[in-house]
């Protein structure tokens, strides 16, 4: 082999090798100053051992204390045996006041500047049901004549398109029916946001800005802890509350009692009474997503 050819191959090989090496180290470029080494190396939620998870929860509390100067309690509550959550909403009594969206905003430590909330209330013309024609930015006394109001949040689908499209399994369905996100595993590709037919997922373009005094200290690892920048989030039926037996924040805030929440497996629950006695329907049934969020009109 002559020397020129040999040198060319050497250079080519060297270049390819260096490129491959750089490519292999590429994830390191995603490592921001905000992220500690432990956080960067943290495994998937489901793979964490009990002690590792405990350390993660304490680390998040510690970090929140450093950033906000507030003591918060981050929990990881497990799904309950014999409990599957369901939600129903009475459209006949919803007045579109958006108190539910406001309660969600506060409960889940949403970004204050964008008024973010997991709930969108659509103002719709009576007699129509085209979700695309609903408006969310109405700003007049409610209920307005000729209108009805359709609050939409995560429908906790049993056949969830958002879960299927996630390339890294950072989102999954828990055994009590709640679709959750491991914010530390999410890569922010937003496939789930695109896949959701209900527009229920939100992307954190920036780290949510919440004044320290307004931070909700009752936090869940899979729910309302302060999210990092660049990850997707969604309604979790307030699992840090509901898995402790409490009602979701949006339900407690509803001034008309349009919202009904409970255990689908308990035949005596309010939600089961609604399913048995009201003409309930789900949004976009034809897509086969099998939502756990039901709507009904009074009859």
């Amino acid at each position: 082999m002559d020397k020129t050819k040999r040198r060319t191959l050497k250079v080519l090989g060297g270049t390819l090798g260096a490129t491959a090496f750089a490519y292999a180290l590429e994830p390191l470029t995603a490592w921001t100053k905000e992220q500690s080494l432990d956080e960067f190396l943290q495994r998937h939620y489901k793979e964490l051992s009990k002690s590792e998870l405990e350390a993660v929860l304490r680390r998040i509390e510690q970090k929140t204390r450093e950033t906000y100067g507030v003591d918060v309690h981050v929990t990881d509550l497990h799904p309950q045996e014999g409990v599957e959550f369901g939600y129903a909403l009475n459209l006949s009594v919803c007045i579109g006041c958006r108190k539910c969206a406001e309660a969600c905003h506060k409960e889940n430590n949403h970004d204050r500047a964008t008024n973010n909330s997991y709930i969108r209330v659509l103002e719709m013309d009576q007699g129509t049901f085209d979700l695309e024609k609903g408006t969310t930015t109405y700003d007049h006394a409610v209920p307005a004549p000729g209108k009805y109001y359709l609050p939409v949040q995560c429908q906790q689908c049993d056949n969830a398109p958002c879960v299927k499209v996630c390339p890294v399994q950072a989102t999954w369905k828990e055994r009590d029916g709640i679709v959750v996100v491991d914010y530390n595993w999410c890569i922010g590709c937003r496939y789930c946001e695109a896949a959701c037919p209900y527009h229920a997922r939100r992307f954190n373009w920036q780290k949510p800005q919440v004044p320290a005094a307004e931070l909700n200290p009752d936090q869940g690892y899979l729910s309302n802890r302060v999210r990092p920048q660049g990850v997707v989030e969604k309604c979790t039926f307030c699992l840090h509350r509901t898995r402790a037996g409490r009602l979701p924040a949006c339900l407690e805030a509803c001034p008309t009692g349009a919202r009904v929440f409970g255990n689908l497996l308990d035949p005596d629950s309010e939600i089961r009474w609604v399913l048995a006695n009201k003409r309930v329907f789900v949004l976009k049934e034809e897509l086969g997503t099998r939502p756990r969020f039901f709507y009904f009109f009074d009859t």
């Binding site: 407690e252 509803c254 409970g262 309010e270 609604v274």
Partner: peptide, 12 residues
């Protein structure tokens, strides 16, 4: 049947 009027507290 808990489907009008609202409530606060515990579902459980």
């Amino acid at each position: 049947h808990g489907t009008h009027g609202g409530m606060t507290g515990y579902w459980d």
